[in-house]
């Protein structure tokens, strides 16, 4: 995936909204949602590719924090999901 913006902690990102054909590690409840990057969680080959038996180079992984209300429409807690950068697009600040 080509990317023009380097991701950094504090940045707002939107997760991929589409429903992929195979194995993925972006939970359904966190699809198409806007969250904040908390910190890097290392770099690992993308699980979606490894599940197809393909070896890939490590891709950055992030802890991304979502407000429960943004995911479920209610709730005062946060959910921090660990997501490969491939699932994330920076949100342009207006």
């Amino acid at each position: 995936m080509s990317r023009t913006t380097e991701l950094a902690p504090g940045m707002r990102v939107r997760t991929r909204a589409t429903d992929p054909v195979g194995h993925t590690r972006l939970p359904r409840y966190a699809r198409g949602a806007v969250g904040v990057l908390v910190e890097r969680a290392g770099a690992h080959p993308l699980a979606d590719e490894r599940a197809r038996g393909r070896a890939t180079e490590p891709h950055p992984v992030w802890h991304v924090r979502f407000a429960a209300a943004d995911l479920f429409g209610s709730g005062d807690h946060t959910v921090t999901v660990e997501l490969w950068e491939d699932y994330l697009t920076p949100v342009e600040e207006s």
Binding site: G22, H23, A47, R50, A51, R52, G53
Partner: peptide, 12 residues
């Protein structure tokens, strides 16, 4: 023989 992601995929 297989990797952990293939194993998860096979369950799913």
């Amino acid at each position: 023989v297989y990797n952990l992601d293939e194993f998860r995929d096979a369950q799913e």
